[in-house]
Simulated scan of single mutants.
Amino acid sequence: MSATSPAPSRAPSSGRLGTVVRHHLFWPVAALVLLLAVNTVFRPSFLRVSILDGHLFGSPIDILRNCAPLMLVALGMTLVIATRGIDLSVGAVVAIAGAVALTYIARSPDPGSAGTALTAMGIALVLALALGTWNGFLVSVVGIQPIIATLILMTAGRGIAMLITQGQITTVTSAPFKTLGAGFWLGLPVATLVAFGVFALVAVLTRRTALGMLVEAVGINPSASRLAGVQARTIVWTVFALSGLFSGLAGLVLASNVMAADANNAGLFIELDAILAVVIGGTSLAGGKFSLSGTFVGVLIIATLSLTVTNLGISPLVTPLFKALVVAAVTLLQSPVMRRKLAERTRRVAPEPKVVAR
């Protein structure tokens, strides 16, 4: 008498490959690697990092430094989108924060002192937090749709920044303030360290405490989360306040890098880049689960793409076109339909379990 039983189970390589391909970070990381490869082909020294005067220099360092403001804005945008919201006012908050800080320094009797720079940054951050709190009030208390509530500040914000700077491009000379955007510490750009520090803090708060679960619960079903005892209004208010605070910090980084406050151009369209980074990273605009690591990869893709256009000798004016193409490709590959087709194809190519007779 014989019986059949399956051979000792061993996951086929195609099954493991299918699991990797279905991971939400696979295609974003693949797009980033492809961009780095293209740059390396056209510039073999692209990935080279050198040390000069104790500081690290090279294209990878430039990418990390240039992506710092977008990283800060995208972190706040990720939390807002996770609660089914959107924040279109981040660019205006960036402009306001830079205008407030540089105007204060310019009018100070001692613009070059560290105390003046710290006070200016503190005032700008408090104002940015207040603006984010205002957005949260309109959304969570008044009940205005997030896109409308933040559109109000988006429209009025640059006008406020223009009033602060009196319609002029404000420039200052302050070594302590310049350190934030153009300084180095331990060989790395200070702006990068600040952005990474904020990223680590948000990651700890959302993944090591209940905050992340509460944000996701509100985004998945606000009514059910409210009935379950979650303070949905407080959560929404908090994420909008954080978005304003992070945008204000990004505005300080941008203003410090050029030592000028341009109310018309500071942070222009950064809200669109932040939304693109969040979407590329796999966070759904419908709310619910979010991915900080995906947002991080999305920010790196956008920063690398901007540098790629320059390295290829293409006019920066067409950079938005390339951004649109990359976003379309990555989001298409991440779509549920494409994921389902990849899963079906993986199952078709996977070998059937062997049957042995005993």
Rank of each mutant, 00 (worst) to 15 (best):
T170A: 09
T209L: 11
T179V: 14
V190S: 06
T192C: 00
V202M: 05
V198N: 05
A191E: 06
T173P: 00
T170N: 02
P176R: 15
A182C: 10
A175M: 10
V172N: 03
L205R: 07
A191W: 02
A175I: 05
S174V: 06
P189S: 04
A200Q: 10
S174P: 02
L201W: 13
Q168D: 13
V204I: 15
L205K: 06
P176C: 04
A182F: 08
T171V: 13
P189Y: 02
V190D: 01
G181C: 09
V172Y: 02
I169E: 13
L201Y: 11
Q168M: 09
T173M: 11
T192E: 00
G197S: 11
K178H: 13
W185Q: 07
V194Y: 06
V202E: 02
V198Q: 07
T173F: 14
Q168S: 10
L193Y: 02
L180N: 08
L193M: 07
G183C: 03
V202C: 02
A200G: 12
V190K: 01
V198R: 05
T170R: 02
L186Y: 08
A195S: 05
T192H: 01
G167A: 04
G181H: 11
L186M: 13
L188W: 10
K178E: 15
F199G: 06
F196D: 03
I169G: 00
V204P: 00
V194W: 08
T179Q: 15
A200K: 11
F199P: 06
L201M: 15
T179K: 10
T209R: 05
T206W: 10
R208G: 01
L186R: 06
